[in-house]
Design a protein around this nucleic acid. Sequence first.
DNA 1: GAACCGTGGGG
DNA 2: TCCCCAAGGTT
Length: 343
Amino acid sequence: MENWDEQTIKAFRKDLLTWYDQEGRAYLPWRVDHNPYRILVSELMLQQTRVDTVITYFNRFMKELPTVQDLAEAPEEKVLKLWEGLGYYSRAKNLHKAAKVVAFDLKGEWPESYDDLLALPGVGPYTAAAIASIAFEQVVPAIDGNFFRVFSRLLKIDDDIAKPKTRKVFYNAVEPIVDPERPGDFNQAIMDLGTSYMKTVDPDTLHSPVRKYNAAYRDGVEDQYPVKTKKKKPVLQRYQALVIYNEKGELLYEQRPKTGLLAGFWTLPLRPIDSIEEIDGEQLSIKPITHVFSHRKWEIWPVAKAVPTELKEGQRFLSVEEQEAIALPKVQHKILDKLKEQL
DNA sequence: GAACCGTGGGG
DNA sequence: TCCCCAAGGTT
């Protein structure tokens, strides 16, 4: 691991921020000001999600719920509808809870320190540091995937970034490097660097504004950084989806459990099967609907069934209007698309 | 500390 | 088709 002296650190900050001022993504909608509410919403949306995807959601969200008070007072269903399709829906629920804490418990007074921000629901070490530095100029490194990648290469840090304890290694290494004058810009500059010259695949280090600080590039081992163990591949799960219409043409839905995958969302009733031979009813499709989550892969066979004599707990018929009014997970939209296709 | 939690894009 | 990934947090 490299160890920079004070002179190198100062030169690095200057080169980084000079580049950031000229070529950073100042146009991103959450960078127009340092409003902590806008920063909070953007950071929650950006967790494990690409910038290009988030921009549209962010602008719509801000138009509908411009202030933390608006969000705190909004019904959860509205928040989820604005989040529909973004995934990791606990983020939306936590964002809603955090807004209530700030607007009601704290009476609109924002927590400004890293530790106080960390106490908000959905706000972990990275997000707390991002908000503290960007909105409140607190001098803390916002260590996300970009930060890991950039500094693993610059400093040749060999620790596995998939391991939780590695965060401390990086924190100790980079804490002295964060610019005390412009901590928020420093962190955002690292992110911009990490998605441009120092991106994961096919980086362009030769033209990077901080090439001369890049120890991995210097030693010709840049492709070995960051060190990161691979994720396990999703496990296949087969279901049959019960397609049941009532006399009004409404479709039977079932609410998922309050915890776990797609918690609380409505989908067609899904029944686990071990093989397609177990399908019980009129098969509506020759090919299954497949949907991949981060750790599971669903294979779904739609099956027509008769109208039940009475509804079970957690079941109800939904009209088309009702289906469009509530947030549905992507996999349910895929099922609906397939059903339309069959007609 | 490992497993869980969504989705879409690109090679 | 499959694999990897992308501004992580919670349990």
